[in-house]
């Protein structure tokens, strides 16, 4: 698949939120502050983890049959490294960089970053393709969560039954949006892009 096809596939057909459910808890609980810093932190960390996992899989885990150590590598080495990077960035004088660091610190131990990295590194991609897939998946998540955030704001002003207020309506909206995204599947992308 071409790079453009991988981008389209990662944003639409295999959207991190709407196809795999990553970050759904975060969205349903309303963690939508600092959108741009959060997106930048997510992209950078997903890219970083995807590259490390791809390299580790290619040269260490798969040749020696040690795939089970992937998650141990992530939690024992990569998460502390991400936390360390976030804490160093949090000391910077720039307010924007501090917001990115704050988002990064929160994202370090989350299924979102790990899930995107696993999806990107496990597919039959080369290193560059895995990196592009990770960045595109982050973009797809940000786009979906921003759309759902806008829907949530409109619904808060609407007359919704008490039981449906908050997370239930958001989940139903996500379901309808996921149905729309299902129409842009891998086959359609392949027809257009090859």
């Amino acid at each position: 698949m071409s790079y453009f096809g991988i981008i389209l596939s990662s944003v639409f057909a295999a959207n991190a939120l709407l196809s795999s459910g990553f970050g759904a808890s975060r969205l349903a609980r309303g963690n939508t502050k600092h959108l741009l810093p959060s997106f930048i932190a997510l992209s950078l960390f997903s890219l970083f983890v995807a590259v490390i996992l791809w390299t580790a899989r290619r040269f260490l885990f798969i040749p020696f049959g040690l795939s089970a150590l992937e998650v141990v590598l992530y939690m024992s080495l990569i998460v502390p490294l991400m936390k360390f990077i976030s804490r160093v960035a949090a000391q910077s004088p720039g307010a924007f960089l501090r917001k990115v660091a704050e988002s990064g610190d929160e994202l370090a131990i989350s299924s979102l970053v790990f899930g995107i990295a696993l999806l990107s590194s496990k597919a039959s991609y080369t290193l560059y393709e895995a990196a592009i897939a990770a960045l595109a998946s982050s973009l797809g998540y940000a786009a979906a969560s921003e759309l759902l955030g806008a829907i949530r704001e409109r619904l808060e002003l609407s007359d919704v039954p008490t039981s449906f207020k908050g997370a239930p309506t958001l989940l139903l909206s996500a379901g309808l949006m996921a149905m729309a995204f299902m129409g842009i599947d891998a086959v359609l992308i392949k027809n257009f892009v090859g």
Binding site: S20, G21, T169, L171, L172, G175, M179
Partner: peptide, 17 residues
């Protein structure tokens, strides 16, 4: 499909509440 999963969860979450 995941779309159905979101909707079923939404309905059950509402029912629980």
């Amino acid at each position: 499909s995941p779309a159905g999963g979101f909707m079923i969860l939404g309905i059950l979450a509402a029912l629980y509440r």
